[in-house]
Design a protein around this nucleic acid. Structure first.
Lengths: 326, 326
DNA sequence: CTGAAAGCGCTAACAG
DNA sequence: CTGTTAGCGCTTTCAG
């Protein structure tokens, strides 16, 4: 049998160029022999590898897997395979991207960028379709899917205000990351609107999105002369660190201090007390990012979209009215 | 410049065949132009893609990310990229493997196999280097890295026996998965050795490793005429389901019933009460699997190794001595 | 030590 | 509708 005919018969797009019975016989033979297209050879010829690269901040961070799952499932359904690269281990982000490009990826999902990340320019230069997920770059130069960070903080702050809290503190995330900066901005705007803004804002910044860093920042917050009656953390990991800080200070949650988190990551409903938090639909976020990327691949000149997913407040046991005596 | 010379200069293995100054000039030029090898073309020629496939049961399952992280980091350090495929979504496992093979993967890590999985034969037939991680196949036909499931259960049961428990129940995992079957076997052997085996064993099997299935199984266990004073679950997710079941029955942990889990997945130290569990070093497991796979790739005829990682008991607040009255 | 030539498996452009 | 031809970017004999 002749190679081109086989190629045509096996390609859905070119199948119409081949006699139906011949096509069927080829299909049958292919199945019988367990024949599989060599994607590398195909890619070499067509310039499309069927591979998508995903850069993750840390696969083991409990917030990321749902996003990855959303990305991978959607891409997989469209016939793509995903290469995941974890930035955690040493080696520059640039290098990772270059390695991915060397493997011929048709597009990239970046879940790692900082606000002024050099990688953005690098990607723009490479002319590769790229979308950002969860985190944004300052200039909005790349298409993105993220949660409404400011709106989410408003939800949390308004909830605490409604409970009667007047001294509300914030454990902010790293300010070089959009989620950290935007959630802090949202926190401050909400306080201002509630008429609760003060000269020395009750804000402490954590150096990383980790439980340990959250504990440190919360400890600083708790030594302020006017101690907050409620703390809203920039994410759930930080909020768990706040729990740790309260424990070491002998303070009870929510009796002494209410705590709210952000993300509704898995199992925060099982901690004690169950964490009040702002849910963002992480799986949907991943799926939307995949969809956006596929759109860019199909039409690289298309408009640069920025999707924002609506947050939702999940009230649990870690927030309550402040003590009357307080 | 001449392609072959460039190829030689850029390949560490062939560099010695080229004049040092020429090699350096080529390196410099390559860096300046931002030249990157096309892995697809290289793979086509050499038969090695630099890609490794990883089959995951469910990326979003909190137990898996640490394993994946261990695998990916180690492989990455050796110059490989990892394609992860999630079996969760529809589409047969065979199909996934075939797709991975179509992409030319140099090896496969399977974290999904059941005891009598057809995929094992399929992989054996394909002559592709494959290693199993966490779960084993019945015939031990593929090399593997897993925890010592029986030893882990012994640790948990002995701990409860030492506390004075006499009626110890088990929420078993799915019996078609090695972890489910072997942990159950370990549980029963340990009870027998402690002289606590009874006619109708206090064992209920969960249909899946989920919190909901754990709850159902625990509920069945709690309606037995002689209710257990302690329950050891086949994994932490199941143990959280046991917590749910106790809550719906109005029973307190550990006052009424002690609970032990397995795996020490992230944040089980934060639930209430903090879960006593058996820790398995999941990151190490992933790393060992990667190392084993690399060994198979280098020497496919090498001996079929089966690594077993030692478990460690982590005692927290969910286990205590039984009530004297009980 | 370096150049020339062939080919990995596939597809696309061009005949027939 | 099908066969022929060429070539994607690389490596690897084989000659010089």
């Amino acid at each position: 049998m002749h190679p081109s005919t086989v190629s045509r018969a096996l390609s859905p797009a070119m199948k119409h160029l081949v006699a139906a019975d011949v096509a069927n016989r080829i299909q049958a033979a292919a199945n019988a022999l367990g024949y599989r297209l060599n994607m590398a050879a195909k890619g070499l010829r067509t310039g499309r590898s069927g591979l998508i690269g995903v850069l993750a901040p840390d696969i083991a961070d409990p917030g990321f897997p749902p996003v990855l799952s959303g990305i991978a499932d959607h891409l997989h359904a469209q016939g793509y395979a995903t290469i995941v690269a974890d930035v955690g281990s040493e080696g520059s982000e640039q290098d990772l991207v270059d390695r991915l490009i060397a493997h011929g990826v048709d597009g990239l999902v970046l879940a790692t960028v900082t606000l002024d990340d050099a990688i953005v320019t690098h990607c723009l230069d490479s002319a590769l379709p790229v979308v950002l997920v969860n985190r944004l770059d300052r200039g909005a130069r790349l298409p993105s899917v993220a949660g409404d960070d400011e709106g989410g903080m408003r939800l949390a702050v308004d909830h605490l205000v409604a409970l009667g809290h007047k001294r509300i503190g914030h454990v902010a995330g790293p300010q070089e990351i959009s989620t950290g900066a935007r959630r802090r901005a949202g926190f401050e705007a909400s306080l201002r609107e509630a008429g609760l803004a003060t000269r020395n804002a009750l804000v402490e910044t954590a150096s990383a999105y980790t439980r340990a860093a959250g504990r440190e920042a919360a400890l600083r917050l708790l030594t302020r002369k006017s101690r907050p009656t409620a703390i809203v953390a920039a994410n759930d990991l930080l909020a768990l660190g706040v729990y740790d800080a309260l424990a070491t200070r002998g303070l009870a949650c929510p009796d002494d201090v209410s705590v709210a988190g952000h993300n509704d990551m898995p199992f925060v409903d099982m901690v004690s007390p169950p964490l009040t938090t702002v849910r963002i639909a992480q799986r949907d976020m991943g799926e939307a990012a995949a969809r956006l990327l596929l759109g860019r691949i199909a039409n690289p000149a298309g408009s640069r979209e920025h999707l924002m997913l609506p947050p939702r407040l999940i009230i649990r046991g870690s927030t309550a009215a402040p003590r009357p005596a307080s």
